[in-house]
């Protein structure tokens, strides 16, 4: 049972108020008719299934009925941030990796 912060309601709510809506940031090609089959296929069918950080779309169906995005670790289930549609995540797999290596080099320097 996740505890999810709705960025529209500005409150934590129980998971049962929400519906998961799959991977976030899947934009419909602006000109579907002139989109390559590959790009259209990627839009329509292909989804990431990462071990680790994932950006997901959720819907606050029993609350404000608004969509928003969640950055969640699929291993620990930790939610690192939630943000509104149209916004970009501040925590990504790359940023986390960069942070981890920066920390490692800091520790190395401390020694």
């Amino acid at each position: 049972m996740l505890h999810i912060y709705c960025p529209h309601c500005d409150e934590y709510r129980e998971e049962e108020e929400f519906r998961p809506k799959g991977e976030a940031h899947i934009a419909r090609p602006a000109d579907p008719e002139n989109t390559s089959d590959e790009d259209w296929g990627n839009y329509l069918f292909f989804r990431k299934n990462p071990r680790g950080l994932h950006h997901e779309q959720w819907f606050h169906s029993a609350g404000c009925r608004k969509f928003f995005n969640v950055t969640r670790d699929t291993v620990s289930y930790e939610i690192l941030e939630t943000y509104k549609p149209g916004q970009q995540p501040t925590v990504t797999a790359e940023s986390r990796q960069a942070q981890a290596s920066a920390q490692a080099s800091n520790q190395g320097a401390a020694k």
């Binding site: 809506k21 934009a27 419909r28 779309q57 819907f59 169906s61 608004k66 969509f67 549609p85 149209g86």
Partner: peptide
């Protein structure tokens, strides 16, 4: 209704 909200909120605001 959820479908309509999704298109409106995320694709065609």
């Amino acid at each position: 209704l959820d479908w309509m909200e999704m298109w409106h909120q995320t694709e065609w605001p």
